[in-house]
């Protein structure tokens, strides 16, 4: 990975963690409400996957703040959405779990576990139909890989040879249930093996994730059909802010945090490109300033007008059928 890209990924990872820590703080302070799912620990995966799949469409889950920002969405608009303000990316109507930005080919933000997978299949069909080669990436958790939507999608994507990259972000837990208690194996890629090429990557290694996603997209662009990638990750926080995470031992969390993706990226930058601690601290200060600015923007942003309650239920101008 070249220096510029490595620095870009590192900045976005630090920005992501700083953003999530600020979100946590503002949740505790009551500025953010509802469900808030933090990506702390998984930023390496989130950022590298977005940067690697720069061209093409992305569908993902409700744990998507870091991905949305890495994809190019303004941190101000993301934070304001968490605050429920009119300046939010979804004008305060979606909240933390529903960030959408078709101008960045980012389709949410789905809070139904596995529900976005069939949508990504449809999108991949459309892209193939339209002659676009870049394909679609759908990200979901290990928990979603036990549902019907997942299995139906493997079947259809494979039968139709769709340009679709399935990415299972396996953090080992479906909310509070250890995956091996509800699935017969720890690695979920096994479920996809009869249908398509599968690969595994260390999700705590951003460089490896970047390379694995690039490689997978190149296969898809070459007309290979669907590919399945499983990234093993570790979530440091509870499933959401309402989960104290008592089901994981201190030992387990210790092992988990020893693989920290940000620290790993720092040593990569130091070893490969000779970056100094001072330079890394500069990146951290830049990230902190961006998040402080986003939080200040969100705090000062206006509430949505009450009239917005009724907006966008349907389209404004209905198409006249007579032609």
């Amino acid at each position: 990975m070249n220096k510029l890209l490595a620095e870009e990924i590192y900045y976005n990872m630090v920005l992501g963690r700083t953003f999530e820590l600020a979100a946590k703080e503002h949740y505790m302070a009551g500025d953010i409400s509802g469900f808030l799912h933090l990506d702390i620990g998984q930023e390496g995966f989130s950022v590298a996957a977005m940067k690697a799949f720069e061209k093409g469409d992305v569908f993902t889950t409700y744990r998507e703040h870091v991905m949305a920002i890495a994809r190019g969405m303004d941190p101000r608009a993301v934070m304001a959405e968490l605050f429920g303000k009119a300046g939010g990316i979804s004008r305060g109507r979606g909240g933390s779990m529903h960030l959408f930005d078709p101008s960045h080919f980012f389709y949410g933000g789905d809070a139904i576990v596995g529900g976005q997978i069939p949508n990504a299949v449809g999108c991949a069909y459309a892209r193939k139909f339209q002659g676009s080669e870049d394909g679609v990436m759908v990200i979901f958790g290990d928990g979603a890989s036990n549902g019907g939507a997942f299995f139906e999608s493997l079947n259809i994507a494979s039968a139709q040879k769709l340009p679709l990259l399935f990415v299972c972000e396996n953090n080992g837990y479906a909310i509070g249930t250890k995956i091996t208690r509800v699935a017969p194996f720890e690695k979920q890629a096994k479920k996809a093996e009869p249908y398509m090429m599968t690969k595994e990557v260390d999700g705590m290694d951003a460089v490896a994730v970047y390379e694995a996603v690039r490689e997978a997209q190149e296969l898809i662009q070459a007309g290979h059909g669907p590919v399945f990638l499983e990234a093993m990750t570790c979530r440091y926080e509870g499933h959401s802010m309402s989960d104290p995470g008592t089901y994981r031992s201190k030992e387990e969390m210790g092992i988990c945090k020893s693989k920290d993706a940000i620290e790993r990226m720092e040593s990569y930058l130091k070893t490969m490109y000779g970056l100094t601690d001072t330079q890394l601290q500069g990146v951290q200060r830049r990230a902190q300033a961006t998040v402080d600015d986003a939080a200040a923007f969100a705090a000062a942003a206006a509430e949505p007008e009450l009239s917005e309650l009724f907006e966008d239920v349907f389209c404004k101008e209905r198409v006249n059928a007579s032609f």
């Binding site: 069939p118 990504a120 449809g122 991949a124 999608s153 259809i156």
Partner: peptide, 12 residues
């Protein structure tokens, strides 16, 4: 999938 895929097609 029939409806779920249609949603994704419409998005695209």
């Amino acid at each position: 999938s029939i409806v779920g895929n249609a949603v994704g097609m419409a998005m695209a």
